[in-house]
Nucleic acid binder design. Structure first.
Lengths: 210, 210
DNA sequence: GGTTATTTGTTCGTATGTATC
DNA sequence: CGATACATACGAACAAATAAC
């Protein structure tokens, strides 16, 4: 796929080559990458340049390095969207709003998909969540939302949502209050019955408590 | 409070210090950062470590370096992050179905947002597109969809969509056929009138021609 | 448990190409 | 054109952490 792009910068080429390597070797999270010296020889570049590329990927959270151990594909693909966005890019209100809006897009779509599918509506997890909300004083917001995303059976959307949720985690309330309980239960009940409109309405109401 | 964050990694400390520097000195896009050697002395670290930090920020698009010129705060602060992470996330996620579904999520949401907003509905671009479809034999699908995403005024969603669209570009038809014309025109007309339901229906019909 | 080899962490020196004045 | 400042890139060297035996 990637023809020789004649990148002026060596380290960018290495980043690209590393990406190819990860795909070609089908490396899984936690797998070990070749050592810096081996990469340096393999690619015919200096070790310093290899390090510059590896560091860049490390800052992104794509790889993890252990001193004396080696370099590994990140085990928790949480990436570092959170800190990076927060510290560098997301000073503007517009960007913050975009993150929340995009989260909401995926959450609402998950609700729609579940409502439209009998099998998904009847998953036992909704009853479990209902009881959990009933019994526990605090429920973690994202836990509920994650279940929605998981149930909607779109792994890519789930992955995107996880990144966005990780960012919002710092800015939003983490747990639900007593007030939200009835709203949430209405959401879950509507969901199980397939009442899309009511479910979405409850979801929208819930957003007001953020 | 405490400046010293006790990061194990020097390069991460430098990244952090650079962030502080940018804020403290109130550097604006395009402004010059101290040279590598100066930074190296200022922070009491080796030049290679400084370079590793600078490269990381460069990959993120936060700074730009000009060979022989110096290092500058990036003029266009873009979501480079989205593009970078997208390549990795999309590669891990080998399900093309998920890519299409996620595309559709964003496209449908864009339609909803436009329908719900008078100002967006009245954008001249819809009439232009309508005429274009009328006059030209072939219209590029993604061109139409991109306009929808742009109009929905969520830059993050737009960037995500662009990545998804690029990824699925090889698998889908690129241009519209004669048959699709009336459907598309119905979509655009409904959009301008704010008939969300009809617009979404036309969109769904259009999907069948993919 | 200890020794050795491997690997990353960090710095430094050197040579080279580029930009600016 | 020349001089200077700067980034680019490589490689050597040693420290420190880990892994292997």
């Amino acid at each position: 796929m990637n023809e020789k792009q004649e990148n002026k910068k060596v380290f960018l080429e290495i980043v690209s080559k590393l990406k190819d390597l990860i795909i070609r070797e089908k490396l899984q999270p936690g797998d070990k990458l070749p050592s810096e010296r081996v990469l340096s020889e393999m690619l015919g570049v200096g070790r310093s340049s290899v390090r510059e590329a590896l560091r860049s990927l490390e800052l992104l959270g794509i790889i993890e390095t252990r001193h004396g151990g080696g370099t590994f594909l990140a085990s928790s693909q949480q990436y570092r969207l959170v800190e990076l966005l927060a510290t560098f890019i997301l000073q503007e209100n517009q960007s913050i709003r975009d993150v929340h809006k995009t989260r909401e897009i995926h959450e609402k779509e998950a609700i729609r998909i579940i409502c439209a599918n009998k099998r998904l509506r009847e998953l036992p997890v909704w009853e479990s969540l209902f009881l959990k909300i009933e019994l526990e004083t605090e429920v973690i917001r994202d836990h509920i939302l994650r279940e929605l995303l998981i149930a909607s059976e779109n792994r890519l959307a789930l992955r995107i949502w996880i990144q966005l949720a990780a960012y919002s985690a710092g800015a939003l309330k983490k747990v639900t209050t007593e007030e939200e309980k009835p709203i949430l239960q209405r959401l879950l009940t509507s969901l199980r019955l397939g009442y899309e409109k009511e479910a979405l309405k409850a979801y929208t109401e819930w957003l007001d408590y953020l």
